[in-house]
Design a protein around this nucleic acid. Structure first.
Lengths: 193, 193
DNA sequence: TTTTAATTAAACCAATTAGTCTAATTGTTA
DNA sequence: TAACAATTAGACTAATTGGTTTAATTAAAA
């Protein structure tokens, strides 16, 4: 039958809360309240707030790898359009969220990247895993002549990833998707073959 | 003769500390200690931590407008190269800082943009003031044919600004300027006329 | 069924948080 | 110089922080 609480449920709460409010602005008590779990149970699963955040990051990293893969494996579209459809889906999700969410890793990279080496390393590792997936699809598009060849697939992928995060940050204070749509249009115009 | 402490000195400390450590990870006591000022004096100048942060943001916003202007008014270079020299200077500064700094407004926009409406508004206002300055120079470059004309000067300026912030975020976890240099090269290749 | 380990539960703790208060002091102005 | 306002000073407060502890309970293994 198992015990009362499930680690993955607590991780999900952590994801929701950290993504919206960041790290230092969230206390353990808020996690406990939202997850409806006593403190002792939390510290039975996680050895510290930092450890908890790391597991939340890794969990989200993996979920996002699945999401990326599902878009980039869509054989109904060309590689170029698969990539575009993925970024378009990010815009749509962000709009649904009233531009309050953005990407958990972008949020935490910004807040903790220069403060906490462990979290910086974990974040970088997950960022890179996404960039590699993007780069694979860019490579395919390059071979088909859909994307320009004067930069490597990895460089293009890092470029898109950084640009997307930059736009997320910008949207946190504009609360409008207008520029994200424009960014998408411009970026894909710039990189096309 | 004036009193013992100067508001502008406290704002400078706030800038240094918030830029490196963010908002919620910094207590008033840390500001007091670094500025060597008692609590009563701090609250004589600023009515709250939030009010202090707002003034730090506005102060930095203005300083950065001066910096941008100084680069973009350099008549020894063409508009395109003036823009490039400005972004190159950001890379150099960030390197000097061991990639621990980044832009105060990018840091605070990310941490507080969805949480604190006052700070979001102040941040957006200052972001925009920079983007307008950049856009002016982009316009000049467009008139000379140095920058492509299929997007408005404002769109190009927002694009550069967002991209730069995205790269700053990325560098917070990679601690390397490699990709920022590449980002600069790619962006100016993409926008050139 | 007995033993053992994992989990649940919440009271408790030391440290820190932003902010207040009162008194002494300093500078400015009438 | 006298009166007044601004500033300096730091002890104090109430709330919150991440984390610990101990006891009760539940599940799984022998």
């Amino acid at each position: 039958m198992g015990y009362k609480y499930q680690k993955k449920d607590i991780l999900q709460i952590g994801y929701d809360v950290f993504r919206k409010k960041g790290y230092h602005n969230v206390g353990i008590n808020e996690i406990l309240k939202q997850a409806n779990i006593p403190k002792g149970s939390f510290y039975n699963f996680f050895k510290s707030k930092e450890d908890f955040a790391m597991q939340v990051i890794d969990d989200y990293g993996e979920n996002n790898r699945s999401l990326i893969t599902s878009f980039l494996n869509n054989q109904a579209l060309s590689p170029f359009n698969r990539l575009k459809s993925f970024y378009q889906s990010l815009i749509d999700d962000n709009q649904k969220d009233n531009y309050l969410g953005s990407c958990l890793l972008n949020t935490l990279a910004n807040e903790l990247g220069t403060q906490n080496k462990l979290i910086a390393t974990t974040t970088d590792k997950n960022f890179l895993s996404w960039v590699y997936l993007i780069a694979e699809c860019v490579k395919e598009a390059q071979l088909l002549g859909e994307i320009r060849n004067d930069y490597s697939s990895f460089e293009i992928a890092e470029y898109l990833h950084a640009g997307c995060n930059g736009v997320y940050s910008r949207m946190k204070v504009t609360h409008s998707k207008a520029f994200m749509e424009k960014w998408l249009e411009m970026s894909f115009e710039f990189i096309k073959g």
